[in-house]
Design a protein around this nucleic acid. Structure first.
Lengths: 285, 285
DNA sequence: CGCAGCGATACCGTGAGGGTATGGAAAGTC
DNA sequence: GACTTTCCATACCCTCACGGTATCGCTGCG
């Protein structure tokens, strides 16, 4: 039983996404006939029809939809394998931690200090990214990430809870709600909320923001308001105020890393982070 | 940037596991020179040494160890993709549920009934297997499995708890502990415990058992004793008795299925199982 | 009916991948 | 220390799988 090949899966996903052999071939940098043949061969090998060819329209069959989904996980795993292997072979090994700027709950300096105190600690490279942080982990581009639950999809990742925080509404001093001691989510109806890169258009259609400074700036300009973890307090500008939101779900800062990760350096980092978090919640919860 | 190929990963895992090019080539049904070349090519492509070739000994480098692990997940994902696609294309779709014979906590009939009452329920094929049930899920050979926590490795799987049970010591009537109303794990020192297929030799080196009938038979023959979930009570032979084990960790029957599974039939099955479990624990917890 | 769009088929050339034979370095063996 | 054994790398050849070009055939459309 001959196994599936990565190249075949790349071809198939291109066709399945374009639903058009010609465009898919162009995207793959090849011509249409070999692509058609490759897909036929794949279908013959699996003994399953993957595409319904109407003479003018290509559609996925049930099995094709399954294979598209599965292909993506295989291809992700393959590129992650390559990247992780390459990084393991580097002569200057280091950990890559991806964070949301301003989203570290104030714990990060202590975590880094605690980790550097561990025996055999590696240099830690910080990467800032707003959206798609889980993706960086899954693709092997980063070793660990700071995320906020409950937002992201954590399948395929292991996690360590660090800090649970209530959420605050951040608004300009001149905002109609600025005098309130507490607000409810209902009070925010109609207010534009930020949109992060990678988020689909739906829902709050405010401007797209890429970093915390920009976000706070836009709030000060009255272009939007935002609901943020309470540790944001330390980073507010003078012209902004924060008001507790009663009914906003508390958010938990979590450290996430790929399942089955075995690096001792990563394990030490997780240990250090957990210890810092335990101490922090113990002191000022 | 040319991607990793499945064939290369198969080759590499063979070499990495055998640590011997000749044997690996034999295992792959090919000769040694092309295998050597393929590995060299892989190393060149990745820009990383994967193997240290002593003239008489081959060893994995750090990067090689990483790639071995990653390769296994890629290859698992690839074969799962093939199998799931094939099953999605079958004209008689059905769910495959893998169970441990006797390990269903008595819930299975009710779960199957409840599921069949759901709209669009598919036929359910039951597969009995003692060891390696999680593997069947990961390889796409089964849609769902009944497992017992905390034993197995659940990475890559989603789960639904069904039933938490205390554990009983099952022994012959003539056993020295048969008169006791309760025992402790300490009382079992030196008793041979069953070994399931797939379990390594270490620990309790009793005979290997493959099904529940055989296990109970061997207990009756005084070849071993076993600690089993309390729902076993209904299935005991006359010549056996069950004694509560005070300090045995309670075991939880869980329904597990592959992460990211999207089949509506599976979703309905999980719903049905959860409903039955909720009702059961409500009645006789 | 002719035309345009698009996937399938026919046919061809090249190169990656597999085979055989052999080299060469290190570890036993006497 | 020469001989042998072991085992990976190299040299060389051959085949076929994959990709390219040209063309066919179906279908919806003006």
């Amino acid at each position: 039983m001959e196994s599936l090949e990565v190249r075949e899966l790349v071809y198939f996903t291109a066709v399945a996404e374009e639903l058009h052999f010609g465009r898919a071939a162009a995207r793959l940098g090849m011509t249409q006939p070999p692509l058609s043949r490759a897909i036929q061969q794949l279908e013959r090998r699996l003994g399953v029809a993957l595409l319904q060819r109407g003479s003018r329209r290509v559609a996925l069959t049930e099995a094709g939809a399954v294979l598209l989904r599965e292909s993506r996980t295989v291809l992700d795993a393959a590129s992650a394998a390559a990247r992780r292997t390459q990084r393991a072979g580097r002569t200057d090994p280091h950990l890559v931690l991806v964070i949301k700027p301003g989203g570290d709950g104030g714990l990060l300096p202590a975590i880094l200090d605690a980790y550097q105190a561990e025996p055999g600690a590696l240099p830690v490279e910080l990467v800032c990214s707003f959206g798609e942080r889980e993706t960086l982990l899954r693709e092997g581009r980063a070793d660990a990430a700071l995320l906020h639950r409950p937002h992201p999809d954590l399948t395929g990742l292991d996690t360590q809870d660090l800090l649970t925080e209530t959420q605050l509404l951040v608004i300009p001093r001149s905002h109609r709600l600025a005098g309130r001691t507490r607000v409810s989510l209902n009070d925010l109806a109609g207010e534009p909320l930020p949109r992060w890169p990678g988020t689909p258009e739906g829902g709050s259609h405010g401007p797209e923001v890429h970093d915390l400074g920009q976000l706070l700036h836009l709030i000060a300009l009255r272009r939007m308001v935002a609901v943020l973890p309470s540790s944001i307090r330390n980073q507010l500008r003078d012209d902004l105020v924060a008001v507790p939101v009663d009914d906003a779900e508390p958010t938990t800062l979590v450290l996430a890393w790929p399942e089955r990760a075995t690096s001792p350096a990563l394990a030490a980092f997780v240990r250090a982070a957990a210890a810092v978090a335990a101490k922090a919640t113990g002191h000022d919860g």
